[in-house]
């Protein structure tokens, strides 16, 4: 029969946008994740998030972890540390950064930061300042030579200084 000659993957090629398993569960978990992304700096009560997602706390944590590989609490910490790295990169002092991303204690911030990033926020800040200074003094050390050459940047190595 002709039908039996069609490869299985072609016959099963179904669009499953609205039918995929438990779409409503996905949407609620994704909304919770986006809520954390947007409100990480506030004193988020994770119990409230599971309430808003209409789940029991246990069920919510399990589903969240299945999708994102972290519990909501672990994820919140990861977002805060990630945001802290961005703020430190933009030269914000360590204590300002700590409070800006939602931590209430400098020591717990520094401890968590070190555990996740591998170095303390102060050292990270210093490293970023060094990199910034290097970017300013010799930007082309950050660009692969082939691209710099193609763009004609090598002929004008000091264009950063002359511009500013």
């Amino acid at each position: 029969m002709l039908g039996s000659e069609i490869p299985v993957f072609m016959t099963n090629r179904n669009t499953i946008t609205e039918q995929y398993p438990k779409i409503y569960l996905y949407r609620r978990i994704v909304q919770a994740k986006l809520f954390i992304d947007a409100n990480y700096a506030d004193n988020i009560d994770l119990d409230n998030i599971s309430d808003e997602a209409y789940f029991s706390k246990f069920h919510f944590i399990r589903l969240f972890k299945n999708i994102y590989g972290k519990t909501p609490h672990q994820y919140l910490i990861a977002v805060r540390i990630d945001r802290a790295m961005q703020l430190l990169k933009s030269d914000k002092p360590v204590s300002d950064t700590c409070y800006a991303v939602g931590f209430e204690s400098l020591s717990s911030f520094s401890g968590l930061f070190k555990r996740i990033v591998g170095i303390t926020p102060s050292i990270y800040l210093m490293q970023q300042q060094k990199i910034k200074a290097q970017i300013k003094s010799s930007p082309l050390t950050f660009v692969p030579g082939c691209f710099a050459e193609k763009n004609g940047w090598l002929k004008n190595r000091n264009f950063r200084e002359t511009k500013s």
Binding site: F9, N12, R13, I16, R27
Partner: peptide
Amino acid sequence: FATYEELKAKGVEFTKPPTKEF
């Protein structure tokens, strides 16, 4: 599915929704 829902919520334009392939 989670990634698709998240990106859609952020306004990313999809030209093909999640579709089973071999």
